[in-house]
Write a protein that binds this DNA or RNA. Sequence first.
DNA 1: GAACTTTGTGAGGACATCCTCATATTCTCG
DNA 2: CGAGAATATGAGGATGTCCTCACAAAGTTC
Lengths: 201, 201
Amino acid sequence: MSSQSSSEKPAIKAPRLERGRARVAALMAAGAGIFAEKGYDAATMTEVAARAGASIGSLYQFFPTKPLLAQALHEEMLEKMASVLETVLAEGRGKPAAAAVQGLFDRFGEFLEAHPAFATLAERRDIDKEKKKQTRARLRGLIAGLLTSAEPPLPAARAEAAAVIVLHLIRASVMLKESDEGPVREAALAEMRRMLAAYFA
Amino acid sequence: MSSQSSSEKPAIKAPRLERGRARVAALMAAGAGIFAEKGYDAATMTEVAARAGASIGSLYQFFPTKPLLAQALHEEMLEKMASVLETVLAEGRGKPAAAAVQGLFDRFGEFLEAHPAFATLAERRDIDKEKKKQTRARLRGLIAGLLTSAEPPLPAARAEAAAVIVLHLIRASVMLKESDEGPVREAALAEMRRMLAAYFA
DNA sequence: GAACTTTGTGAGGACATCCTCATATTCTCG
DNA sequence: CGAGAATATGAGGATGTCCTCACAAAGTTC
């Protein structure tokens, strides 16, 4: 009843040998680097393979398609992000809201610095729109949870909305760091803390 | 003394006849639409020409290059943005800070809704980095001016930093509107107003 | 060590897009 | 009107990128 006559959908293939795992790791690292530097479209599979010290055929052995490479990287980063969030949530429970949110900013900032391709990969236009919405919603929910379990707790009705804003502010703070205008950056980050303090009081 | 022997840099050519002006207008409208819908890379010159009801050769007659088409659109939008800003600054002088900023949000929001390609064109990776920084700096300066001339005036030292944040919040509010998650959107916008009110008090 | 599986290689096919160019049409102006 | 300028056209050249494929090498298992 299910023998798709000829058109198997291409999917990434997990390596089975040690050598293969090393290759895949190198390929993903190279991909992350090049996507971050040039953006999705300008990145070429040839360059990814070259940076990984592999041949183009070897790259396609494990990632049969450019979108699939991007997807694999994106999913890997989403997992790491989830684990970062778990940590923050655990740390923040019961602390004052401003401190909890500051923790969010710090950890999230570290994460995005360690994964400079994340923004590029998350904004790709060919991602399933529904999945994107779900991811955003889950993130929102987790942060809302942090805000309602802080001290003093935010009313549940406002928590989700506040979470949305916190997320955007995190994004803003990362963009600030990337825009390397030193003096402005520091002042703006300080002002942002001031704003959050005023808001949570 | 200045007869660059053969390599004239390609530049956009202004139309001289009425027919030409109409063409250019149609081409730019089509370009803006397609860039907005598909992003810079996925947009094709052929499709732009088709949507404008022109031949591909006609498009290249006025815009000898894809980057030049994007640049022309970007500059046109920057000018409109500048004029919008002038209006807001004039209106806001002397008003309470929160109201002035709300005006900024509204007008800017309208502008970005009317020019959905703006974000795409402004984020292009091949834009002169220095020019980008200058544009941002001028924008910051203008908004800082609005904040220091409001009532009560923000101290000049904080105004620039606050302007940076206001800009990011505007960006956030536009992204919210685009993400069409109705209920969340309204709540988040309300929460954002609350945050601004707290901040400016 | 023989059969089999996994991994490696790089030339080149298929295709899409940017842009050119020779030529035709429309418009301006004396 | 007639000469010259401005605009219009679309086939196709040049280029670059994704991906395939036939075959070779390394590793595993019995």
